[in-house]
């Protein structure tokens, strides 16, 4: 189990026990975290799982593929620490990571 913290734009935080190997999106959906709809179920096709990653953890979330980059290019409110949470695989290194959901997803 790896602890991931999901914050919404207003600052409300929810802590979730994520399984190693599942995606940060899947852990959110399992635990009914608002703001991560994940319509395509992780196919990198919808961009409804956009999150801002705690910059300190960003390098540990792995490389972005071209597909994800292009999807993010057109997402609302992209920032340097934007990721599609379905493309981040939970690993022990992510223990305590905080991700924030953009206001547009609420």
């Amino acid at each position: 189990m790896v602890k991931i913290i999901y914050a919404d734009h207003s600052g409300t935080e929810r802590e979730v026990d994520a399984n190693i190997g599942e995606s940060v999106m899947e852990a959110a959906v399992r635990n009914n975290i608002p703001g991560i709809d994940a319509d395509c179920g992780g196919a990198c096709a919808c961009a409804t799982c956009h999150v801002y990653v705690d910059p300190e953890f960003l390098p540990k979330t792995g490389e972005q593929e071209a597909m994800e980059q292009s999807m993010l290019d057109f997402a609302d409110g992209v920032q340097e620490n934007s990721r599609l949470s379905c493309q981040i695989s939970v690993s022990a290194e992510l223990e305590g990571m905080k991700v924030t959901t953009p206001e547009s997803q609420h």
């Binding site: 961009a47 597909m67 292009s70 999807m71 290019d73 057109f74």
Partner: peptide, 12 residues
């Protein structure tokens, strides 16, 4: 086809 920018732009 492998063209997310085209997809998202057209959708809008």
């Amino acid at each position: 086809v492998n063209a997310p920018a085209e997809f998202l732009t057209a959708k809008r």
